[in-house]
Each structure stands twice: as C-alpha cells, then as structure tokens.
Design a protein around this nucleic acid. Structure first.
Lengths: 217, 217
DNA sequence: TCTTCTCTCCCGCATCTGCGTGAGGCTCCG
DNA sequence: CGGAGCCTCACGCAGATGCGGGAGAGAAGA
C-alpha cells in the first residue's frame, strides 16, 4: 500500500480538538507521500485560507464542528474547490450525518479511532477518485437510496391516466393536455377526476405533489 | 478470509450464458461454506422457483438478461424475499444500470472478470449485510447522490413566499392558505404571483413541480 | 352471455385561479 | 430624507377548474 509518490499529497485538517488535530497532523507528516502543512480549528478558518492558498488534494474534516458544521463546510469547500476530496472524521457512526455529508460532496468517511493504516489508505484512495466507505456504511447509503427511489406505490392508474398525470406535472392546462393527446377537453376532465379519486387527492397541485413525491411520473 | 461456516451459504445464479453459469456454479460449489444448488437462465425461472423453494441467502444475477432484466429481477425478488442479498454480475461498468440495480435493492456488484477471491469475498460480505462496491463505483453512486440532492437553486424567495409555496405544495387553495397563515385571500394571491414570477412559472402545478423537483420545500 | 373496466365524450354550475392594477405601512440603507 | 424591498390588502374579470350528473363503444373476463 505504501508507495513513494512523485509529489507528496497535500492534506489539510479541520478539527476543533487540539490534541486530536495535532496527532493527526503528525501522523500525516510521518507518512511518505503525504504532507500536512496546514491545520484548522474551524471551517471558517479553512475557508478563509482558501482565499490565499491553493486548495489541497485532500481535507480531513471533523463532522461535528462548532460554527459552520463539517457538513456545511464540505458543501462550501466543494463550491470553491470541487477537485478537493473531503474525508469526514467522526466518532459515532451516525446515519444521518454521514448521509448529509456524503450528499454535500464528501468523498468518504473515517472513524476517529481508525487504525493509521486505514487513514492512510483512505487518503490515498480518495486521491485516486475512490470513496472510502466500509461495507456497512455503503449499505446504509444504499438503503437510503432504495428508500428514496423505491416506494412507487401502485394506485392502479391506467395508461391514459398516467399520460394525463404526466402532462399535469408538466404544468399543462386541461385544454393543453387535450390538444397534446388529441382528445376532447371533457375526456381529460374525466381522466383527471379519475386520477384524483385514485390518488385520493382533490386538486391538481395535490396530484402533482403526490406524483412527484412518490415518483409516479 | 476463508472461514468454515456452520451451514453453507446458499447461492443461486441467474445468468443466460450457459458456459459462464456453469463455471460460476462449479466455482461456488468448490468453495467451503458456499453451495449453489440451483441456477437459472432467466429471472422468470428464478421467480417461479421461489414459489416452491425457500429463497437463498444470496443470488448472483446477470444485469443484462433477456425478458425480465436483472434490474427488474432484483426489484421483484426483493419484494418476495427482502432478506436475500443480490449481487449483480456485469461485463461493463455501466453507470446507469449499476445505479438502477442498486436502487432496486441490489447488495452490490461484480465484474464478470473478477478474480475468484473477489467473488467469494463479495458473497460473504453480502451475507454479513455489507455492500460490495469498489471505490470507483461508490464514487459514482455518491456523485449521483450529490447531483440528486445538491441543485437547490436560489430564486430569492422571501420567507413568507416560502411559507406560501409550502402550503401550495400541500395542495391547499388560496383561501385555505390565507386561513392557515391568518392573512387575507388577496395577500396570498399577491404572494403567489410573486412566487410565479420568481420561479418563472405560470401556474400552481408548475410551481409545485418546480418546488418539488428542485427541492425548494 | 353478461358484467366490468377503460376510454371516450358531453352539460352545467359554483368556485378557484391568473393577472392587471393600485395602495398603505414597515424596515433597512445610503 | 428618499428610495428599495417586503408584507399587507383590495377590485374586477376572463378563463380554468372541480364536481355533480349522463352516455356510448370496445375489450377483457367471469
């Protein structure tokens, strides 16, 4: 795993605990191919530094920072420097925060009590464009994924009704829908009412909301 | 990695290529702790078998099957047996299909030219509730993730307008919104029109669609 | 065969909506 | 102080919508 690099990978650390920050910095600097010239106690400091310095390849960021949180920090950092890989540091395997951090653009995730090998591996993997996640975290992400896309309740909409619903979501009026489907206005009206009944809604906005939320479109 | 199991893990294989299927079956059966009593040439056959037999712990499923595709296969299999872990088999690292398969509930992903060790590892990892993804695939999944949740354009809606938009998405009429916010009907009307202008839409359905799609709510 | 389902079309009416226009009060900022 | 921006409220009107009814045709299934 440990290979000499042409140029050392630059790593920055954002961590409010002084001891842990120092330990991590020493650890990174002790590794051939990695260097950690800067550490920060807050996202604010990190973001300020980006005004005067080139962004590093990798940032190790505590997920639970005072002020701008690690999650918001990732978001902002990625806006300024999308190429920078951010690995979150955390004590607990908190489902929600991992999720949010990953959504915000984090490249992975390390427990603070990880072995040094794991840490090096994560940094190097991140540089190669990979994502550091253990299998369980991956599963959690996937679960949320599935949940997010799976529901798809079946309300027994007919094909025509699906078409009409589609057009509805596109913001068309009944008349426009009628024209686009080469049907009478009254037909669309009937379909719409049947759709409402099947979706248990009473207005087009409700129908649109339900269709989009439950991915019926 | 190779440990003896109390009871062998049952693996089924769904793969339309006869040779590859046979090779995989032999491979699985050659491994201590794994057994492959059934193989199928199509999802249809697999699903039929589930009517008469207990579902296996793991299914290796070709992603590109004729008839019911592997992706649809996962979806249906997971409905019948949510506990079964499905690992997709594929030749190409096709972004879209991986994504769909994972959404459908797949526990991971194997290239057909994977080493035997990788295959065993994947099956055993899947059984432990993990997800088998290489770092690059994980990155792709995360990218789609980010894309899915990041957009959040800022249309400069005021707080009141956000509230009204919220109520709109809930399917309320102007009158109902007015009542729930203790405002006049006319006020809501004005807010609504300002919202339309800011979102560049011309109807409530359009506004609801935009709000939901771009996660303004 | 008869029923059910789906798709199609129609009428009428109370209500809701989109939009033009105007206006008063508030706060914030230069 | 004056303007800008936001929130509030108001009138009127053409057009769209939701919903009550009714009805015919064809396809699928019991």
């Amino acid at each position: 795993m440990s290979q000499p690099y042409q140029e050392a990978i630059t790593v920055w650390i954002v961590e409010d605990n002084d001891d842990f920050r120092q330990t991590m910095q020493d650890l990174i600097n002790s590794r051939d191919g990695l260097r950690c010239p800067h550490v920060f106690g807050s996202c604010e400091d990190l973001l300020a530094a980006l005004n005067t310095e080139f962004a590093p390849e990798v940032v190790l960021m505590d997920i639970g920072l005072p002020g701008i949180s690690g999650i918001e920090g990732v978001r902002r950092l990625k806006v300024i420097s999308p190429a920078t890989h951010v690995i979150m540091l955390t004590i607990h395997e908190n489902n929600d925060r991992i999720f949010q951090a990953l959504c915000a653009g984090a490249s992975g995730y390390l427990l603070k009590m990880s072995s040094t090998d794991k840490i090096f591996e994560a940094v190097e993997e991140a540089c190669k464009g990979g994502v550091v996640m253990n299998a369980k975290i991956a599963r959690r992400v996937l679960n949320m994924f599935t949940q997010l896309s799976a529901p798809k309740w079946d309300y027994g909409l007919t094909e025509r009704e699906q078409e009409v619903l589609h057009a509805l979501v596109d913001g068309k009026t009944k008349q426009q829908i009628a024209e686009s489907l080469f049907l009478s206005f009254h037909t669309i009206d009937t379909h719409l009412r049947n759709i409402y009944a099947k979706l248990h809604v009473h207005s087009r906005s409700d129908a649109v909301a339900k269709a989009l939320r439950e991915r019926l479109v």
